[in-house]
């Protein structure tokens, strides 16, 4: 008998195709932000440990960090952290059952747990936006 075709989407299936709900995109952004922060953190352990060597080494290292490329990186890390942390709190509330609502008999048009958690999702997005703007102001415009 001829073989069957394997129709699993693979890692592209994580990315969606344009007609998914917003929560699906939050899921993939959350993953990317988490990976980005983890990568940064591996370097951050060593970079921040330089304070062990005293003020001269430290100030020299911090002077290198004033470069615009590093500032953009700092902003990206801050953005990633703000989004990942706030979305993470939303996910904690959902995955521990607080924001999904109780099982109820489905009557069309169906209101699912996605509808129940939507206000929380909006609050999280607004807070993320506020924090990202504050971080952007702080990193790029605030003069110490």
């Amino acid at each position: 008998m001829a073989y069957k075709y394997d129709n699993h989407l693979g890692i592209i299936g994580w990315l969606g195709g344009g007609r998914w709900g917003i929560e699906r995109y939050l899921y993939i952004t959350h993953r990317l932000a988490g990976l980005g922060i983890l990568l940064f953190f591996m370097l951050h352990i060593f970079e921040s440990s330089l304070r062990v060597f005293g003020p001269r080494t430290w100030e020299a290292a911090m002077a290198t960090m004033k470069h615009p490329l590093f500032e953009i990186g700092e902003f990206l890390v801050f953005t990633g952290f703000a989004f990942h942390a706030l979305n993470g709190i939303r996910l904690i509330l959902i995955e521990l059952g607080f924001a999904v609502g109780k099982a109820e008999e489905p009557t069309y048009p169906y209101r699912t747990s996605l509808n129940t958690q939507r206000p929380l999702m909006l609050i999280v997005m607004v807070l993320s936006a506020i924090l990202i703007l504050a971080g952007g102001y702080n990193i790029f415009f605030f003069v110490k």
């Binding site: 801050f78 952290f81 702080n138």
Partner: peptide, 21 residues
Amino acid sequence: AGFMIFVLGGLHMMTVHLNGV
């Protein structure tokens, strides 16, 4: 751990990256 990071990491971010705000 995630919740701990939200609290402690949040304080850290405010200390270092929101020092102007």
